[in-house]
């Protein structure tokens, strides 16, 4: 085995990374209201309580709707930007694309308060759609980053070949481009869905009377007796995230294999 010391360090680091996540199911199945050791016994009652908490169910619904719309919007915007970046030369290309990517390096609190100021100044009501607007803004750069590699791996002569063989610009896009970048599109949808579902600060500022799941959880963390239910819910969310991400990763790899490219690893 190469890198003995490093290998030990790497495993310790993984322990550090996974420490909080491992605790989640432990306390979710622990039969005690207080989140501390020693454990007192096994129970599934915290999971059973989830559907009996209407506010929680409501917030999950709100979050899922927001996340779905955000995923669709930001992926469509991401396709436009990635396509323009890969295929065309146009004036001010770098500044325009750079500006679209800006939310990636902007503290979220800034995005949140600036949107809040404008929405309040225009006298518009806060609600699910304002959260969607904010989430789409921060998810689009992630979609672009994923889709950029999908579009960049696409050999431009593939599209020319289809055109040369008699297809129109639109049917070329449908028959060649879309199938080849589809894995990228699927992983962009999943990633933006996951980010939106988990995002707190923007939702906290821009949500109306119907809180999203993280905003609801934030409220619950102050009440110790509610925390085991939060743990149960968190366990389900972790499981779901892992499943979604595994699917996204499989699609991404298949996409790279399909376009004949080399795996350079990772979404970011």
């Amino acid at each position: 085995m190469k890198g003995g010391g490093l290998r030990i360090y790497a495993w310790l680091y993984l322990v550090f990374l996974y420490a909080p996540i491992v605790l989640l199911p432990i306390f979710a199945f622990n039969d005690a209201t207080i989140i501390a050791f020693p454990l007192s016994g096994f129970t599934t009652k915290w999971f059973a309580e989830i559907p009996n908490t209407p506010a929680l169910v409501q917030s999950v619904q709100t979050s899922v709707i927001i996340a779905v719309i955000t995923a669709l919007l930001s992926t469509i915007l991401g396709i436009c930007a990635a396509r323009a970046g890969a295929k065309y030369r146009f004036p001010l290309k770098a500044p325009i694309l750079g500006f679209i990517m800006l939310p990636l390096v902007l503290p979220e609190i800034i995005v949140a308060v600036s949107l809040l100021v404008v929405i309040l100044a225009l006298g518009l009501p806060l609600g699910g759609w304002t959260v969607v607007l904010g989430h789409t803004l921060i998810c689009t750069p992630f979609c672009i980053a994923i889709l950029n590699s999908a579009f960049a791996n696409l050999d431009p002569s593939l599209e020319e070949a289809a055109f040369d063989l008699g297809e129109t610009a639109w049917s070329t896009f449908r028959l060649i481009t879309l199938p080849l970048v589809m894995p990228g599109i699927v992983s962009a949808l999943l990633i933006s869905f996951t980010i939106s579902l988990d995002e707190f600060i923007i939702a906290f500022f821009l949500t109306g009377t119907e809180p999203t799941l993280p905003v609801y959880l934030w409220g619950q963390l102050r009440f110790p007796q509610k925390i085991p239910v939060v743990m149960a819910l968190g366990t389900i969310l972790v499981a779901l995230s892992v499943i979604l991400l595994t699917i996204a990763e499989i699609f991404r790899r298949r996409g790279i294999a399909r376009a004949g490219g080399k795996d350079t690893g990772g979404f970011l």
Binding site: S157, L158, E160, A161, D164, L165, G166, L180
Partner: peptide, 20 residues
Amino acid sequence: VPANKRPTNMVFQSYAIFPH
């Protein structure tokens, strides 16, 4: 007359074989 309407066809340097 665009490429898709011309009586020519092309063999590309990269061959451009549709991988899917």
